[in-house]
Design a protein around this nucleic acid. Structure first.
Lengths: 118, 118
DNA sequence: AAAATACTTCAATCTATATTCAAGTATTAT
DNA sequence: ATAATACTTGAATATAGATTGAAGTATTTT
């Protein structure tokens, strides 16, 4: 993480899991109740809860309690953070930063790499 | 993976590892020799090789052998695939697909979720 | 042809994190 | 107050995949 891509990396890791990727896709269709998610994906409520903790911890998702009955919880994408993620990803993968360069090693460089094979 | 985001998911997983993320960032600055990467990151050549196998398997990276001495290998980002990744990611995270919707459950829905807590 | 160099592959181990399930907390209904 | 409902938490287990190191392959040099 040479530059300031730590946050981007955290977001990427959050999506890099079967269950969370599926949850993310569901939430991208709009607000979901936790049991809708559990039912859709065939997973337990506690597992939904665990993954939501991760997604909320990164700001990607927010939760709201039902106004009439606070025992029910709903989840949705935080569009502001989603947009930050998109911009950060575009910067991370911006092809314009790819430079034409010569490697510091190779047969002509006489600059043999001193890393021992392992 | 309800829709056609399987490939996108594979790319995301490829970046969701400390070492590969760092390798990716190095390659985004331009072509690199394998031992440059090993030296920069303080890892073994065999580990570089392993991760390159993953990145190349997904098309994100290509390798070329030195023209004068085929024992040396260089890696670089495949800009075409990188662009595909960018487009796919933008589609996956497109905020326009987020709909205003009512969850199928909740106190008013009388449609209690039948998933048993676990 | 033999040796040296540069990288790759394989299999064993290690590690981070996902999953499970039981117990716990918060809210609402009786 | 008590019980029921809806979700969360914690700790143990399971699992996928990262790392390691030795052996292997390919290429070049002598």
């Amino acid at each position: 993480m040479t530059e300031g891509h730590q946050q981007t990396y955290e977001w990427i890791k959050a999506l890099a899991n079967d269950t969370r990727f599926a949850i993310f896709q569901l939430l991208m269709t709009g607000l979901q109740c936790n049991c809708e998610i559990a039912k859709s994906l065939g997973i337990s409520l506690s597992l939904v809860s665990h993954h939501m903790h991760v997604l909320m911890g990164l700001g990607l998702v927010t939760s709201t309690r039902d106004e009439q009955d606070g025992r029910w919880i709903y989840f949705e994408i935080n569009p502001t953070v989603l947009e930050q993620f998109r911009q950060a990803f575009l910067q991370l993968t911006d092809p314009n930063q790819i430079q034409t360069r010569q490697p510091s090693c190779g047969p002509n460089q006489a600059n043999a790499c001193s890393v021992k094979p392992g």
